[in-house]
Nucleic acid binder design. Structure first.
Lengths: 338, 338
DNA sequence: GCGAGGCGCTGAACCGGATAAGTAACGTGA
DNA sequence: TCACGTTACTTATCCGGTTCAGCGCCTCGC
């Protein structure tokens, strides 16, 4: 019932452990016939290399760590993380790496997890998400010396390898599109203001509005939940200078905003245009279907995983700018009311 | 820059490796003063036990495996898996176990992953989800001898430990509630018909309808996507004997169904009542908010993880019936039109 | 016909901890 | 005072692979 080891193979084949090791790893040092015999026996008794024994010889753990710092109820809502994970996963499993996942509640805990994993030799590297400004995790990771890829803008990634996309370009495209439709009062329901990408989007939004001569851009920050998205929308739509278009930082808030508009007897898109950042099946399922900023999130995760594996395997790795989200117009955007 | 080992500690403390090992593991055999000195040195140089070395001595890997068999684009949509994972995770990390995750495309690949993980000693056990009838994974897992908990009904879990909930009760509660409101023609938009829980819900639905003297229960099967949910709804609402209430097997289909109804100028809940299985923030964000079958998915995952850890640690473990989903009435259900 | 060199393999050390067995030093009771 | 038990260690071995040094044996070249 015990798992077979190379010693078992060696005994059956009548050779030494060393010979078996050479044979199984495709190293020179055994004849073709012996190698074939050893491989046949290994296959027959169902031998698998014990990963612990391998790792003990300085080999890699063949595992990448990901500690997600969000409370459970937020995590489930957005498709983003699940898509990101499956993208990362796809790239990892193609190269026989495993993914170690932990859900934590704050950054201290997150770093403790990484420190432990790294110290115990359980992971070869990690992917950092939700980058903040002056993020303490960056310098701590640099100090640890662990291979790390950061999903976030290179201006804040320190010496870690960044993988990012130009959110500013997507914001500009959206504002230009809405302006071309005739909108002048555009508001933005944004995510957490401490995140780098939120601020970059904020800045790009302000700049684009200024450039196009629009009145001062209004941005409301939220925690990404539908609840706060609804509340922000209600406030915006109740204000004196009600916007004619709102851009949301995720799809769940956009759906919530849509519901609030309908509840307030505003026609979408007749009275109010809505744009969602990140395009999930959700956007296409509601009425009207939402105009959305589409990006390939699994591919994004895949690119990050690729860089991380190169980094782990010793190559010098450059950062990577993924393609920017592009606007997919659907039924939720139209010219503003006359 | 190398990671410190107990040999480093032993050298600094002027004792042997063995003494250090005893001290660090709280075993008798070292004096209090020596133990304190060793612990201080270990702490100071940032020593962590190498998990590979531990595992090599027959210790556990302290890792649980989860291979999710769904294409990326389905996975992201439903909050279910992410909530399940964070529930599992919560229980695991409380006991210092890690979660190894892999996304696969079919059951063969899934079993290959488990076989590899188990053979390589990377995991101590696994959780099986999406149970089928006569699921080949059950017998294969039994043959492997790996500790496994199945999320699914005990009738199909073989000798593996089942964790399940009584979906039939929830179905009955829903049908009774709708009947009490006055509905007679109730339809069900279900998930994949090969899944055990789908069939159990189908049967309970049919039985409840028959018992309450309702006309023949209509059930349409889908792949859980909003698209198919919308298509099924369109078909149901176009039929001669249009239902006055529809029960959906997940929230994304319920939202899609709501949109289709509104697109067909039917008032929800005036003309059509809608019930969603699984209550996510999504249900509360749309108008009207959806009446839903609420269950605590993280807790469900947590219960499975608990049983698995007991199983791994050697105890005989009984299956566990989690509490059934309960109906949370909201704005999407009302008496049928007169 | 003999040394050089390569092939195919063996034996042993090693990775970092856990642990069984062995050994001094010391205290204790008879 | 001596046998005995306990304390506080040390030494050695093991886990399952990898890897290096070494060692016959065969072949080849001169």
């Amino acid at each position: 019932m015990k798992r077979p080891t190379i010693a078992d193979i060696a005994r059956q084949a009548g050779v030494s452990k060393g010979a078996v090791s050479y044979a199984l790893n495709g190293q020179p040092g055994v004849s073709a016939s012996t190698r074939a015999r050893i491989l046949a026996i290994a296959d027959e008794i169902g031998w698998r290399p014990n990963s612990a024994a391998r790792a003990l010889n300085g080999a890699r753990a063949n595992t990448v760590g990901l500690a997600l710092c969000r409370p459970a109820r937020f995590l489930g809502v957005e498709p983003f993380f699940m898509e990101l994970i499956s993208g990362i996963e796809g790239e990892l499993s193609a190269r026989s790496y495993a993914l170690m996942l932990q859900v934590v509640t704050d950054h201290d805990e997150e770093m403790a997890v990484y420190r432990r994993w790294w110290g115990e030799g359980r992971v070869d590297g990690a992917i950092l998400v939700d980058l903040h400004f002056a993020d303490p995790r960056v310098s701590e990771m640099e100090a640890l010396g662990m291979p790390v890829v950061v999903l976030g803008h290179p201006s804040e990634s320190g010496s870690l390898v960044p993988v990012w996309s130009d959110d500013g370009a997507a914001v500009r495209e959206t504002v230009e599109y809405l302006t071309a439709l005739g909108h002048r009062r555009i508001a933005r329901v944004a995510g957490l203001p401490k995140l780098v990408h939120t601020v970059l989007r904020d800045q790009a939004f302000g700049a684009a509005c200024a450039e196009l001569g629009l009145p001062e851009a209004v941005t409301v920050h939220t925690d990404y939940t539908g609840e706060e998205g609804a509340r922000a929308t209600r406030r915006l739509l109740s204000s004196a200078s009600r916007p004619t278009a709102v851009v949301y930082d995720n799809d769940i808030m956009a759906v919530a905003g849509l519901s609030v508009a309908q509840e307030m007897r505003l026609d979408v898109p007749g009275d109010l245009s809505i744009v969602a950042w990140d395009d999930s099946p959700l956007s296409q399922v509601v009425r009207p279907p939402l105009t959305a900023l589409t990006r390939d999130i699994p591919a994004y995760g895949g690119h990050a995983a690729q860089r991380l594996l190169s980094l782990i395997e010793g190559g010098p790795v450059a950062g990577f700018e993924d393609r920017a989200a592009r606007l997919t117009p659907r039924g939720s955007t139209a010219p503003p009311p006359a």
